[in-house]
Amino acid sequence: MLRQGFRSWWTAGILVIFLVLLGVVRWLVIQPYVISSSSMEPTLRSGDRVLVNRLAYLNAAPSRGDIIVFAYPKDPKRTFVKRVIAVPGETVELRGNQVFIDGQVLREPYLKAGDYPPYGPETVPRGKVLVLGDNRRQSEDSRAWGLLPQSAIIGKVWLTYFPFQRWRFF
């Protein structure tokens, strides 16, 4: 009889430890977000649910092409999702509906077609990145509020998990 009670307490203890670890991973490592605008179409659509790796930039810098979640510079209580286009040391310019990095055209197969105004040229300083939405016509991004401090980055989009037919890793 005593042995049966010990087993159930042991099982309950293991379950509690598992749930605590799951909570720690959920809030400190992988965090879910819901996309709330069309600024990243066609890559991410309004209503898509994504998982963000909060440790992605712990020992690494963002790279061009990364899709990131960050605290909006004008209101840090809000979060935005955009694509990193230029990193420190690069000169970026938008003209003729194309992005130029250090004078070379950036190939952007993910881009939603459409006209958008010119920008730059601007050299990205250390500690900042230039971010743009894939839907440039409907994106409030670095063109509107300037270069993003890397300290504002929450993490890298890792996975779209809902809706299921749009499930994919980044």
Rank of each mutant, 00 (worst) to 15 (best):
S46K: 15
A152M: 10
P76Y: 11
Y110A: 09
G146D: 12
I153F: 10
V92D: 05
P118Q: 02
I85T: 04
T160W: 01
F70M: 12
N97G: 03
R64N: 12
F80V: 06
E140C: 04
E90S: 06
Y119D: 11
A144N: 14
S39P: 03
A56I: 04
Y72R: 13
K156N: 08
V50S: 09
L51M: 12
G89N: 13
L55G: 00
G47W: 09
V84F: 09
A56H: 02
T43S: 14
L58N: 07
W167Y: 15
I68V: 15
S151A: 14
G133H: 04
R137Q: 14
A60G: 05
V69T: 10
P125Y: 11
E93Q: 15
R78H: 10
G96L: 09
L147H: 06
K112Y: 07
A71K: 13
L55M: 14
L132F: 13
I67E: 09
P73Q: 11
Q150D: 09
P109S: 06
Y119Q: 05
G47V: 07
Q150E: 15
A56L: 03
V105M: 07
T43V: 14
R136P: 00
R45D: 14
L44I: 08
D134W: 07
Q165I: 01
V87L: 08
V84P: 04
V129H: 05
R78N: 12
D115T: 10
E140A: 13
I68Q: 07
P118W: 08
M40Y: 07
I85R: 00
G47Y: 10
P125M: 04
E140K: 10
Y57H: 05
P163N: 07
D66W: 12
G120L: 10
L130M: 15
W145N: 09
Y57R: 01
G65S: 09
G47N: 09
F100T: 01
R107W: 12
P42D: 08
Y119L: 13
E90V: 11
P88W: 09
R143P: 05
S142G: 01
V99Q: 02
